[in-house]
Design a protein around this nucleic acid. Structure first.
Lengths: 183, 183
DNA sequence: GTCTATACGGCGATAGAC
DNA sequence: GTCTATCGCCGTATAGAC
């Protein structure tokens, strides 16, 4: 039932605008306009603004779940991790100017919206567990701690690149992560 | 001239509330109430809400500058870095539940407020340069890159601890940073 | 310098015709 | 299902008395 063209356009617009301007700064009018849907009609598909965010988060989660499942097809853990690092590399410019769509929402929702925080943070949690699994296969002494450090380095580097306005920082950090893991 | 009791109270209230709830979610009425200053009177001290944020950022910058200057008195770079890591350790609970006051403002301002972003990001930049100087003294091959990685790990760990609701993540990350640097 | 009252705009959400 | 008009609230900012 969620497969309506308008609904999809609304969610897509919400994801793009929220990534660029943040959740609070994005208005329903902005989303409706970008999706070419009249403002009042938005409420036929979503009861509240938070519901749109939830749909956007669901989209992100499905996307990452699919991506990690695809990467699981690769034969070696090193290849899988390299594939994982390709994600921020492909979106380098976007991540460096708008931040990680997951990480920045965690920041925003971490301040107030408890229910939405748990949903968006679950994606980060998925990533940590997936990386930990690869590290376990690579015989790390403490795969969980190493995975947390890995994701922290990635998220922190995105923040630094965005804050200092230098996407090179992110590119170099990805390179460094790849080297440290695959050495 | 900036040393008015009311003004100081307003800035202090702004810092605390913005750290807890973020800049956009914090209203001038909240700040005025917490500082026990009538709403209308706020505008005698600050022309706009952004001006209050600027004052808060100035406060943070002075605080960190003083702290780093104090740490410079310590004889060995290792001790200085250990002292630097004591900052998030002392504020562990607060950082784990509300994030880093600097990092989370960078996220928030990175989305829209360009002028304020540059000011708050300067603090991160200061930290990176200061850490890089210590690494240079410790004969690191690439002090700048190592410093960026160091701050990224710290910021990313704070984000993970806050998002996943486990302050242990931050405590462990600090321990790990200390061990990696001082070994 | 201080404080009350209020203007003004924008946003989330609703009513109700079609 | 779709869309226009609009309500009600809240947040920033101002006017102006004291």
């Amino acid at each position: 039932m969620p497969a309506s063209a308008k609904r999809s356009r609304l969610v897509a617009a919400a994801k793009a605008l929220i990534h660029r301007h943040g959740y609070y700064a994005t208005t329903l009018a902005d989303i409706a306009h970008a999706a070419k849907v009249p403002l009042g009609n938005v409420y036929y598909y979503f009861k509240t603004k938070a519901d749109i965010a939830e749909a956007a988060i669901g989209d992100y989660r499905r996307w990452f779940t699919d991506m990690l499942t695809q990467l699981d097809e690769l034969p070696h853990p090193e290849q899988r991790i390299a594939g994982f690092l390709d994600i921020p590399l492909v979106h380098l410019t976007q991540y460096a100017s708008n931040g990680c769509p997951i990480g920045s929402l965690c920041q925003e929702f971490g301040k107030s919206e408890g229910a939405l925080l748990r949903r968006i943070a679950a994606i980060l949690s998925d990533q940590v567990m997936w990386i930990a699994e690869q590290f376990r296969l690579l015989n790390h002494a403490d795969p969980q701690a190493d995975a947390l450090d890995f994701i922290a380095r990635l998220q922190g580097s995105i923040l630094l690149a965005q804050s200092l306005g230098k996407k090179n920082i992110l590119a170099a950090a990805i390179q460094r992560l790849r080297r440290d893991v695959l050495k």
